[in-house]
């Protein structure tokens, strides 16, 4: 196949060989190539530079790039592991790998902890949980009195903050989610099992000879 395809993929800064990415993740080579189809469509939606910026990420999630969302922002920052302000293809595949149904449970628990540890101090603090609750309420136009928000926080910290120091550390988090497995639901995307049927056009753009592997 050839030069034409290779030249095309060089326009994607941070593009990595699907065989290499498959060897590092739960994805097959075909699945990595199918993810590239998704990556191409998101990364070209505003600026066709082969990278996903925050506006493009929010556009893919909300169908509008202007809508700022605390949670989408936080996920973007966790995908952008090199903190470049953009997500390249390697970042995209490795981050989505955590959401694969076959990814290790510990990786999901760890990613989710980082997601909620907004300022990255290694603890989920009460003020962070309050900030997230307020963001959720404004997003859903749900109104709750401050006393209700505080009572939700009281109950949550009674359950999750075993040493009652006002913040949830990693061990407390692991223990808390083991008793509340529903909290890990957002960390698994069943879609990732069917990625090759969702994006079948990867077959026409494949650079790998035996795409079944």
């Amino acid at each position: 196949m050839g030069c034409f395809q290779s030249k095309g993929r060089r326009q994607f800064p941070g593009y990595e060989d699907p065989v290499f990415l498959a060897s590092q993740t739960a994805f097959t080579v075909s699945e990595v190539e199918a993810l590239f189809e998704l990556f191409k469509s998101i990364s070209s939606s505003v600026i066709d530079d082969g990278l996903i910026n925050k506006e493009e990420f929010q556009l893919a999630l909300f169908k509008t790039g202007k809508k700022e969302n605390l949670f989408a922002n936080r996920i973007f920052n966790l995908f952008d592991v090199k903190q470049k302000g953009v997500i390249d293809f390697g970042d995209f595949v490795r981050a989505l790998n955590v959401f694969h149904p076959n990814a290790p449970h510990e990786d999901k628990v760890d990613f989710c902890f980082k997601l909620y540890d907004l300022d990255g101090t290694g603890f989920i603090e009460r003020k962070e949980v309050k900030q997230m609750l307020i963001a959720l309420l404004s997003e859903s136009e749900m109104r709750l009195a401050d006393e209700v928000v505080e009572s939700i926080l009281d109950k949550t910290f009674q359950e999750a903050d075993a040493n009652q120091d006002g913040k949830i550390d990693k061990t407390e988090w692991e223990n808390f989610v083991s008793h509340n497995p529903s909290l890990m639901k957002i960390m698994t995307l069943p879609y990732l099992r069917d990625i090759t049927t969702t994006f079948p056009s990867f077959v026409f753009h494949s650079e790998v000879e035996d795409i079944a592997t």
């Binding site: 949670f71 997601l115 949980v129 997230m132 609750l133 997003e139 109950k155 949550t156 509340n180 529903s182």
Partner: peptide, 25 residues
């Protein structure tokens, strides 16, 4: 006495956390 929900159960319903939407055409 009203049932008080867990904060993280509420937070995890945010649309911004639903990456599944990326795969819905």
């Amino acid at each position: 006495r009203p049932v008080v929900m867990n904060a993280f159960d509420l937070i995890s319903t945010s649309q911004g956390l639903d990456l599944g939407i990326l795969f819905e055409k």
